[in-house]
Design a protein around this nucleic acid. Structure first.
Lengths: 214, 214
DNA sequence: TAGATTGTTAATCGATTAACAATC
DNA sequence: TAGATTGTTAATCGATTAACAATC
Protein backbone atom coordinates (compact mmCIF):
# COMPACT_ATOMS: atom_id res chain seq x y z
CA UNK A 1 0.00 0.00 0.00
CA UNK A 2 1.29 3.47 -0.80
CA UNK A 3 1.94 5.20 2.46
CA UNK A 4 1.77 8.73 3.83
CA UNK A 5 4.77 10.54 5.19
CA UNK A 6 6.55 9.10 8.17
CA UNK A 7 4.13 8.38 11.01
CA UNK A 8 5.66 8.33 14.48
CA UNK A 9 5.53 5.16 16.51
CA UNK A 10 3.75 7.04 19.31
CA UNK A 11 0.84 7.52 16.91
CA UNK A 12 0.86 3.93 15.64
CA UNK A 13 0.72 2.61 19.21
CA UNK A 14 -2.56 4.40 19.81
CA UNK A 15 -4.35 3.20 16.68
CA UNK A 16 -5.09 -0.27 18.09
CA UNK A 17 -6.55 1.40 21.20
CA UNK A 18 -8.95 3.38 19.05
CA UNK A 19 -9.80 0.29 17.04
CA UNK A 20 -10.61 -1.66 20.19
CA UNK A 21 -13.05 1.01 21.37
CA UNK A 22 -14.69 1.14 17.95
CA UNK A 23 -14.96 -2.66 17.71
CA UNK A 24 -16.69 -2.76 21.09
CA UNK A 25 -19.12 0.00 20.17
CA UNK A 26 -19.73 -1.55 16.76
CA UNK A 27 -20.40 -5.04 18.05
CA UNK A 28 -22.66 -3.94 20.87
CA UNK A 29 -24.40 -1.60 18.41
CA UNK A 30 -24.67 1.00 21.16
CA UNK A 31 -24.01 3.96 18.94
CA UNK A 32 -23.57 4.91 15.30
CA UNK A 33 -21.59 8.08 15.99
CA UNK A 34 -18.72 8.86 18.31
CA UNK A 35 -16.99 12.16 19.04
CA UNK A 36 -13.27 12.51 19.61
CA UNK A 37 -14.20 13.22 23.22
CA UNK A 38 -15.91 9.90 23.77
CA UNK A 39 -13.40 7.92 21.73
CA UNK A 40 -10.58 9.56 23.66
CA UNK A 41 -12.28 9.03 26.99
CA UNK A 42 -12.68 5.32 26.32
CA UNK A 43 -9.19 4.87 24.90
CA UNK A 44 -7.46 6.93 27.56
CA UNK A 45 -6.29 9.66 25.18
CA UNK A 46 -7.12 13.39 24.99
CA UNK A 47 -9.72 14.42 22.36
CA UNK A 48 -7.26 16.73 20.60
CA UNK A 49 -4.76 13.93 20.25
CA UNK A 50 -7.40 11.57 18.86
CA UNK A 51 -8.21 14.09 16.13
CA UNK A 52 -4.57 14.77 15.39
CA UNK A 53 -3.70 11.08 15.19
CA UNK A 54 -6.55 10.34 12.79
CA UNK A 55 -5.77 13.42 10.69
CA UNK A 56 -2.44 11.84 9.66
CA UNK A 57 -4.38 9.34 7.61
CA UNK A 58 -7.25 11.36 6.21
CA UNK A 59 -10.50 13.11 7.11
CA UNK A 60 -12.81 10.57 8.70
CA UNK A 61 -15.15 12.78 10.69
CA UNK A 62 -17.90 15.32 10.08
CA UNK A 63 -17.75 18.72 11.76
CA UNK A 64 -20.43 19.20 14.36
CA UNK A 65 -21.25 15.48 14.28
CA UNK A 66 -18.29 13.23 15.06
CA UNK A 67 -17.05 9.97 13.57
CA UNK A 68 -19.25 7.25 12.13
CA UNK A 69 -18.32 4.18 14.18
CA UNK A 70 -18.59 1.55 11.47
CA UNK A 71 -16.78 3.63 8.88
CA UNK A 72 -13.90 4.70 11.11
CA UNK A 73 -13.52 1.11 12.30
CA UNK A 74 -13.19 -0.09 8.73
CA UNK A 75 -10.70 2.61 7.84
CA UNK A 76 -8.58 1.87 10.90
CA UNK A 77 -8.61 -1.82 10.03
CA UNK A 78 -7.27 -0.94 6.58
CA UNK A 79 -4.61 1.37 8.01
CA UNK A 80 -3.45 -1.37 10.39
CA UNK A 81 -3.56 -3.99 7.61
CA UNK A 82 -6.12 -5.92 9.62
CA UNK A 83 -8.65 -6.09 6.80
CA UNK A 84 -7.13 -9.33 5.54
CA UNK A 85 -5.61 -12.37 7.22
CA UNK A 86 -2.09 -11.96 8.59
CA UNK A 87 -0.35 -15.31 8.77
CA UNK A 88 1.98 -15.83 11.71
CA UNK A 89 4.63 -18.40 12.61
CA UNK A 90 5.40 -19.17 16.25
CA UNK A 91 8.89 -20.35 17.13
CA UNK A 92 9.44 -22.11 20.43
CA UNK A 93 6.58 -24.30 21.53
CA UNK A 94 7.17 -24.25 25.30
CA UNK A 95 4.41 -23.55 27.75
CA UNK A 96 4.26 -19.86 26.87
CA UNK A 97 4.26 -20.57 23.13
CA UNK A 98 1.57 -23.18 23.56
CA UNK A 99 -0.56 -20.80 25.64
CA UNK A 100 -0.30 -18.12 22.96
CA UNK A 101 -1.34 -20.59 20.26
CA UNK A 102 -4.41 -21.65 22.22
CA UNK A 103 -5.30 -18.06 22.99
CA UNK A 104 -4.94 -17.11 19.34
CA UNK A 105 -6.94 -20.06 18.05
CA UNK A 106 -9.78 -19.29 20.41
CA UNK A 107 -9.83 -15.60 19.51
CA UNK A 108 -9.58 -16.35 15.79
CA UNK A 109 -12.44 -18.83 15.99
CA UNK A 110 -14.71 -16.61 18.06
CA UNK A 111 -14.25 -13.39 16.15
CA UNK A 112 -14.46 -13.61 12.38
CA UNK A 113 -12.89 -10.16 12.06
CA UNK A 114 -9.81 -11.02 14.10
CA UNK A 115 -7.38 -11.55 11.26
CA UNK A 116 -4.19 -12.33 13.14
CA UNK A 117 -3.65 -16.05 12.74
CA UNK A 118 -0.90 -18.36 13.97
CA UNK A 119 -0.68 -20.97 11.21
CA UNK A 120 2.76 -22.55 11.66
CA UNK A 121 4.80 -23.83 14.60
CA UNK A 122 8.54 -24.37 14.95
CA UNK A 123 10.76 -25.93 17.58
CA UNK A 124 14.11 -27.72 17.71
CA UNK A 125 13.33 -30.07 20.58
CA UNK A 126 13.40 -33.62 19.10
CA UNK A 127 10.55 -34.64 21.38
CA UNK A 128 8.37 -32.00 19.72
CA UNK A 129 9.48 -31.78 16.09
CA UNK A 130 7.14 -33.50 13.60
CA UNK A 131 4.47 -33.91 16.30
CA UNK A 132 1.06 -32.30 16.11
CA UNK A 133 -0.05 -29.54 18.47
CA UNK A 134 -3.59 -28.17 18.38
CA UNK A 135 -3.96 -29.43 14.84
CA UNK A 136 -0.67 -27.99 13.58
CA UNK A 137 2.53 -29.81 12.71
CA UNK A 138 5.65 -28.64 14.57
CA UNK A 139 8.43 -27.95 12.06
CA UNK A 140 12.16 -27.93 12.79
CA UNK A 141 13.57 -24.40 12.86
CA UNK A 142 15.69 -25.30 9.82
CA UNK A 143 12.47 -25.39 7.82
CA UNK A 144 11.73 -21.74 8.59
CA UNK A 145 12.57 -20.31 5.15
CA UNK A 146 10.73 -23.05 3.31
CA UNK A 147 7.59 -22.98 5.46
CA UNK A 148 7.53 -19.17 5.46
CA UNK A 149 7.27 -19.29 1.69
CA UNK A 150 4.75 -22.14 1.57
CA UNK A 151 2.51 -20.70 4.24
CA UNK A 152 3.06 -17.05 3.24
CA UNK A 153 4.07 -16.09 6.79
CA UNK A 154 4.48 -12.37 7.40
CA UNK A 155 5.01 -12.21 11.13
CA UNK A 156 6.82 -14.31 13.74
CA UNK A 157 6.31 -14.77 17.46
CA UNK A 158 9.52 -15.74 19.23
CA UNK A 159 9.07 -17.75 22.44
CA UNK A 160 12.42 -19.52 22.63
CA UNK A 161 14.92 -19.19 25.54
CA UNK A 162 16.92 -15.94 25.64
CA UNK A 163 20.13 -17.63 24.54
CA UNK A 164 18.57 -18.77 21.25
CA UNK A 165 16.51 -15.69 20.49
CA UNK A 166 18.97 -13.67 18.40
CA UNK A 167 19.81 -16.68 16.28
CA UNK A 168 16.13 -17.37 15.68
CA UNK A 169 15.52 -13.71 14.82
CA UNK A 170 18.33 -13.87 12.26
CA UNK A 171 16.70 -16.90 10.67
CA UNK A 172 13.37 -15.09 10.56
CA UNK A 173 14.92 -12.10 8.79
CA UNK A 174 16.66 -14.44 6.34
CA UNK A 175 13.34 -16.11 5.62
CA UNK A 176 11.77 -12.77 4.75
CA UNK A 177 9.69 -12.19 7.88
CA UNK A 178 9.01 -8.46 8.27
CA UNK A 179 7.67 -8.26 11.84
CA UNK A 180 8.77 -10.06 15.00
CA UNK A 181 7.08 -10.17 18.37
CA UNK A 182 9.74 -11.17 20.88
CA UNK A 183 8.90 -12.71 24.27
CA UNK A 184 12.48 -13.74 25.12
CA UNK A 185 14.28 -11.63 27.73
CA UNK A 186 16.94 -10.52 25.26
CA UNK A 187 17.62 -7.41 23.20
CA UNK A 188 17.32 -8.42 19.57
CA UNK A 189 19.01 -6.65 16.70
CA UNK A 190 17.27 -6.64 13.32
CA UNK A 191 18.03 -4.73 10.13
CA UNK A 192 16.06 -1.67 9.03
CA UNK A 193 12.83 -2.66 7.36
CA UNK A 194 12.17 -5.41 9.89
CA UNK A 195 9.96 -4.38 12.79
CA UNK A 196 10.35 -5.62 16.30
CA UNK A 197 8.03 -5.49 19.29
CA UNK A 198 9.10 -6.61 22.72
CA UNK A 199 6.77 -8.42 25.08
CA UNK A 200 9.26 -9.30 27.78
CA UNK A 201 7.13 -10.07 30.81
CA UNK A 202 9.90 -9.88 33.40
CA UNK A 203 10.90 -6.42 32.16
CA UNK A 204 7.37 -5.20 32.77
CA UNK A 205 7.28 -6.78 36.21
CA UNK A 206 10.59 -5.16 37.10
CA UNK A 207 9.32 -1.80 35.99
CA UNK A 208 6.20 -2.17 38.13
CA UNK A 209 8.35 -3.16 41.11
CA UNK A 210 9.87 0.31 41.04
CA UNK A 211 6.59 1.87 42.07
CA UNK A 212 6.20 -0.39 45.10
CA UNK A 213 8.87 1.72 46.79
CA UNK A 214 6.87 4.93 46.67
CA UNK B 1 11.91 4.13 51.05
CA UNK B 2 12.28 7.90 50.88
CA UNK B 3 12.15 8.86 47.25
CA UNK B 4 13.69 11.52 45.04
CA UNK B 5 11.61 14.02 43.13
CA UNK B 6 9.22 12.76 40.50
CA UNK B 7 10.97 10.42 38.08
CA UNK B 8 9.35 10.16 34.65
CA UNK B 9 8.04 6.83 33.47
CA UNK B 10 10.29 7.04 30.41
CA UNK B 11 13.26 6.85 32.77
CA UNK B 12 11.82 4.03 34.88
CA UNK B 13 11.21 1.94 31.76
CA UNK B 14 14.91 1.98 30.91
CA UNK B 15 16.19 0.96 34.33
CA UNK B 16 15.36 -2.75 33.86
CA UNK B 17 17.20 -2.65 30.51
CA UNK B 18 20.32 -1.37 32.24
CA UNK B 19 19.92 -3.94 35.00
CA UNK B 20 19.68 -6.76 32.46
CA UNK B 21 22.93 -5.72 30.79
CA UNK B 22 24.67 -5.45 34.17
CA UNK B 23 23.34 -8.83 35.35
CA UNK B 24 24.68 -10.46 32.19
CA UNK B 25 28.09 -8.84 32.53
CA UNK B 26 28.18 -9.59 36.24
CA UNK B 27 27.25 -13.26 35.90
CA UNK B 28 29.61 -13.94 33.02
CA UNK B 29 32.30 -12.03 34.94
CA UNK B 30 33.48 -10.54 31.64
CA UNK B 31 34.22 -7.10 33.01
CA UNK B 32 34.42 -5.20 36.28
CA UNK B 33 33.92 -1.77 34.72
CA UNK B 34 31.52 -0.44 32.15
CA UNK B 35 31.28 2.97 30.53
CA UNK B 36 28.00 4.69 29.70
CA UNK B 37 28.95 4.04 26.07
CA UNK B 38 29.09 0.28 26.46
CA UNK B 39 26.08 0.10 28.78
CA UNK B 40 24.12 2.23 26.35
CA UNK B 41 25.26 0.24 23.35
CA UNK B 42 24.11 -3.02 24.93
CA UNK B 43 20.83 -1.61 26.23
CA UNK B 44 19.97 0.27 23.04
CA UNK B 45 20.17 3.73 24.61
CA UNK B 46 22.48 6.71 23.93
CA UNK B 47 25.41 7.17 26.36
CA UNK B 48 24.23 10.64 27.36
CA UNK B 49 20.82 9.32 28.26
CA UNK B 50 22.31 6.50 30.33
CA UNK B 51 24.24 9.04 32.39
CA UNK B 52 21.27 11.34 32.74
CA UNK B 53 18.95 8.50 33.80
CA UNK B 54 21.35 7.26 36.46
CA UNK B 55 22.05 10.79 37.70
CA UNK B 56 18.44 11.05 38.89
CA UNK B 57 19.26 8.56 41.61
CA UNK B 58 22.82 9.45 42.63
CA UNK B 59 26.43 9.42 41.49
CA UNK B 60 27.36 5.86 40.70
CA UNK B 61 30.34 6.31 38.37
CA UNK B 62 33.91 7.55 38.49
CA UNK B 63 35.07 10.18 36.00
CA UNK B 64 37.58 8.85 33.53
CA UNK B 65 36.78 5.28 34.57
CA UNK B 66 33.13 4.35 34.20
CA UNK B 67 30.71 2.38 36.36
CA UNK B 68 31.66 -0.58 38.56
CA UNK B 69 29.42 -3.37 37.27
CA UNK B 70 28.74 -5.14 40.56
CA UNK B 71 28.09 -1.93 42.44
CA UNK B 72 25.79 -0.34 39.87
CA UNK B 73 23.89 -3.61 39.58
CA UNK B 74 23.29 -3.65 43.33
CA UNK B 75 22.19 -0.03 43.37
CA UNK B 76 19.80 -0.55 40.49
CA UNK B 77 18.35 -3.57 42.23
CA UNK B 78 17.68 -1.40 45.29
CA UNK B 79 16.14 1.39 43.19
CA UNK B 80 13.82 -1.12 41.50
CA UNK B 81 12.99 -2.78 44.84
CA UNK B 82 14.39 -6.03 43.50
CA UNK B 83 16.78 -6.55 46.41
CA UNK B 84 14.11 -8.44 48.35
CA UNK B 85 11.37 -10.87 47.39
CA UNK B 86 8.28 -9.39 45.77
CA UNK B 87 5.30 -11.64 46.32
CA UNK B 88 2.80 -11.85 43.49
CA UNK B 89 -0.71 -13.21 43.09
CA UNK B 90 -1.95 -14.46 39.72
CA UNK B 91 -5.65 -14.26 38.97
CA UNK B 92 -7.05 -16.37 36.16
CA UNK B 93 -5.44 -19.76 35.81
CA UNK B 94 -6.14 -20.40 32.13
CA UNK B 95 -3.47 -21.56 29.73
CA UNK B 96 -1.74 -18.17 29.67
CA UNK B 97 -1.83 -17.86 33.45
CA UNK B 98 -0.51 -21.37 33.85
CA UNK B 99 2.31 -20.69 31.39
CA UNK B 100 3.31 -17.56 33.28
CA UNK B 101 3.37 -19.50 36.56
CA UNK B 102 5.61 -22.17 35.10
CA UNK B 103 7.88 -19.61 33.52
CA UNK B 104 8.15 -17.72 36.79
CA UNK B 105 8.80 -20.81 38.87
CA UNK B 106 11.58 -21.90 36.56
CA UNK B 107 13.22 -18.49 36.52
CA UNK B 108 12.87 -18.12 40.29
CA UNK B 109 14.42 -21.54 40.89
CA UNK B 110 17.30 -21.04 38.44
CA UNK B 111 18.33 -17.56 39.46
CA UNK B 112 18.62 -16.91 43.20
CA UNK B 113 18.64 -13.15 42.56
CA UNK B 114 15.37 -13.13 40.63
CA UNK B 115 13.10 -11.89 43.37
CA UNK B 116 9.78 -11.70 41.57
CA UNK B 117 7.76 -14.63 42.86
CA UNK B 118 4.24 -15.81 42.09
CA UNK B 119 3.09 -17.31 45.39
CA UNK B 120 -0.71 -17.39 45.15
CA UNK B 121 -3.25 -18.38 42.50
CA UNK B 122 -6.88 -17.38 42.10
CA UNK B 123 -9.69 -18.47 39.82
CA UNK B 124 -13.47 -18.69 39.94
CA UNK B 125 -13.91 -21.78 37.77
CA UNK B 126 -15.37 -24.47 40.07
CA UNK B 127 -13.32 -27.11 38.26
CA UNK B 128 -10.16 -25.30 39.35
CA UNK B 129 -10.87 -23.76 42.75
CA UNK B 130 -9.35 -25.61 45.72
CA UNK B 131 -7.25 -27.76 43.36
CA UNK B 132 -3.46 -27.71 43.34
CA UNK B 133 -1.43 -26.34 40.45
CA UNK B 134 2.36 -26.60 40.38
CA UNK B 135 2.35 -27.01 44.13
CA UNK B 136 0.04 -24.06 44.80
CA UNK B 137 -3.57 -24.08 45.92
CA UNK B 138 -6.01 -22.23 43.68
CA UNK B 139 -8.13 -19.87 45.77
CA UNK B 140 -11.55 -18.46 44.85
CA UNK B 141 -11.35 -14.80 43.83
CA UNK B 142 -13.49 -13.96 46.85
CA UNK B 143 -10.50 -14.89 49.00
CA UNK B 144 -8.34 -12.19 47.41
CA UNK B 145 -8.32 -9.76 50.34
CA UNK B 146 -7.71 -12.47 52.90
CA UNK B 147 -4.93 -14.23 50.98
CA UNK B 148 -3.29 -10.92 50.04
CA UNK B 149 -2.90 -10.20 53.74
CA UNK B 150 -1.80 -13.71 54.69
CA UNK B 151 0.68 -14.04 51.86
CA UNK B 152 1.77 -10.39 51.91
CA UNK B 153 1.06 -10.00 48.19
CA UNK B 154 2.22 -6.72 46.66
CA UNK B 155 1.58 -7.28 42.98
CA UNK B 156 -1.08 -9.01 40.87
CA UNK B 157 -1.01 -10.54 37.42
CA UNK B 158 -4.42 -10.49 35.75
CA UNK B 159 -5.01 -13.22 33.19
CA UNK B 160 -8.80 -13.42 33.23
CA UNK B 161 -11.07 -12.80 30.21
CA UNK B 162 -11.55 -9.15 29.19
CA UNK B 163 -15.11 -9.03 30.50
CA UNK B 164 -14.00 -9.88 34.05
CA UNK B 165 -10.79 -7.83 34.14
CA UNK B 166 -12.08 -4.52 35.54
CA UNK B 167 -13.98 -6.29 38.29
CA UNK B 168 -10.89 -8.29 39.22
CA UNK B 169 -8.77 -5.13 39.20
CA UNK B 170 -11.24 -3.47 41.56
CA UNK B 171 -10.93 -6.39 43.94
CA UNK B 172 -7.15 -6.17 43.78
CA UNK B 173 -7.23 -2.48 44.68
CA UNK B 174 -9.65 -3.20 47.51
CA UNK B 175 -7.30 -5.87 48.80
CA UNK B 176 -4.44 -3.37 48.92
CA UNK B 177 -2.48 -4.52 45.86
CA UNK B 178 -0.32 -1.63 44.63
CA UNK B 179 0.78 -2.88 41.18
CA UNK B 180 -1.15 -4.77 38.51
CA UNK B 181 0.17 -6.41 35.35
CA UNK B 182 -2.79 -6.79 33.02
CA UNK B 183 -2.88 -9.32 30.18
CA UNK B 184 -6.57 -8.94 29.41
CA UNK B 185 -7.48 -6.98 26.27
CA UNK B 186 -9.30 -4.30 28.23
CA UNK B 187 -8.52 -0.81 29.43
CA UNK B 188 -8.46 -0.91 33.21
CA UNK B 189 -9.09 2.05 35.46
CA UNK B 190 -7.35 2.16 38.82
CA UNK B 191 -7.06 4.95 41.40
CA UNK B 192 -3.94 7.09 41.82
CA UNK B 193 -1.32 5.27 43.83
CA UNK B 194 -2.01 1.95 42.11
CA UNK B 195 0.26 1.23 39.17
CA UNK B 196 -0.79 -0.56 36.05
CA UNK B 197 1.22 -2.15 33.27
CA UNK B 198 -0.40 -3.52 30.16
CA UNK B 199 0.81 -6.64 28.46
CA UNK B 200 -1.96 -7.05 25.92
CA UNK B 201 -0.51 -9.36 23.29
CA UNK B 202 -3.07 -8.67 20.59
CA UNK B 203 -2.50 -4.93 20.88
CA UNK B 204 1.20 -5.47 20.17
CA UNK B 205 0.44 -7.73 17.24
CA UNK B 206 -1.95 -5.16 15.81
CA UNK B 207 0.67 -2.47 16.12
CA UNK B 208 3.22 -4.63 14.31
CA UNK B 209 0.70 -5.34 11.56
CA UNK B 210 0.76 -1.63 10.69
CA UNK B 211 4.33 -1.90 9.48
CA UNK B 212 3.57 -4.79 7.15
CA UNK B 213 1.98 -2.23 4.83
CA UNK B 214 5.15 -0.27 4.29
C1' DT C 1 -30.08 29.35 12.35
C1' DA C 2 -27.62 27.90 16.72
C1' DG C 3 -24.87 24.41 18.64
C1' DA C 4 -21.48 21.17 18.22
C1' DT C 5 -17.39 19.13 16.64
C1' DT C 6 -13.88 18.51 13.25
C1' DG C 7 -9.24 19.47 11.16
C1' DT C 8 -5.33 22.30 11.76
C1' DT C 9 -2.15 25.81 13.37
C1' DA C 10 0.33 27.92 17.14
C1' DA C 11 1.89 27.43 21.94
C1' DT C 12 3.54 24.56 25.43
C1' DC C 13 5.56 20.95 27.53
C1' DG C 14 8.79 17.25 28.15
C1' DA C 15 12.37 14.25 26.66
C1' DT C 16 16.70 13.56 24.26
C1' DT C 17 21.09 15.10 22.59
C1' DA C 18 25.18 17.94 22.48
C1' DA C 19 28.71 20.03 24.85
C1' DC C 20 31.93 20.67 28.40
C1' DA C 21 33.90 21.56 33.00
C1' DA C 22 35.20 18.58 36.69
C1' DT C 23 38.02 14.93 37.98
C1' DC C 24 39.57 10.19 38.30
C1' DT D 1 50.70 14.11 33.54
C1' DA D 2 47.62 12.87 29.50
C1' DG D 3 43.55 10.50 28.34
C1' DA D 4 39.12 9.19 29.36
C1' DT D 5 34.64 9.48 31.14
C1' DT D 6 31.42 11.22 34.40
C1' DG D 7 27.69 14.52 35.97
C1' DT D 8 25.29 18.49 34.47
C1' DT D 9 23.79 22.48 31.89
C1' DA D 10 22.19 24.44 27.57
C1' DA D 11 20.33 23.48 22.96
C1' DT D 12 17.45 20.80 20.20
C1' DC D 13 14.01 17.98 18.95
C1' DG D 14 9.49 15.91 19.06
C1' DA D 15 5.06 15.13 21.04
C1' DT D 16 0.97 16.94 23.31
C1' DT D 17 -2.28 20.50 24.30
C1' DA D 18 -4.81 24.72 23.50
C1' DA D 19 -7.26 27.44 20.51
C1' DC D 20 -10.12 28.47 16.75
C1' DA D 21 -11.79 28.93 11.92
C1' DA D 22 -14.39 25.97 9.01
C1' DT D 23 -18.55 23.62 8.51
C1' DC D 24 -21.94 20.05 9.33
Amino acid sequence: MMRWKKISDAVVRRLPLYLRVLEEAHQSGETKLMSSHELGERAGVSPALVRKDLAWFGEFGKQGVGYEVGYLREELRKILNLDREIRIGLIGVGSLGHALVRYNQQRYAEDSHFNLHIVALFDNDPSKVHRQLDGMLIHPIDALAEVTKQERLQMAIVTVPAAAAQQVADRCVEAGIRAILNFAPAKLVVPAGVYLANADVSLEMQRLAYYLGE
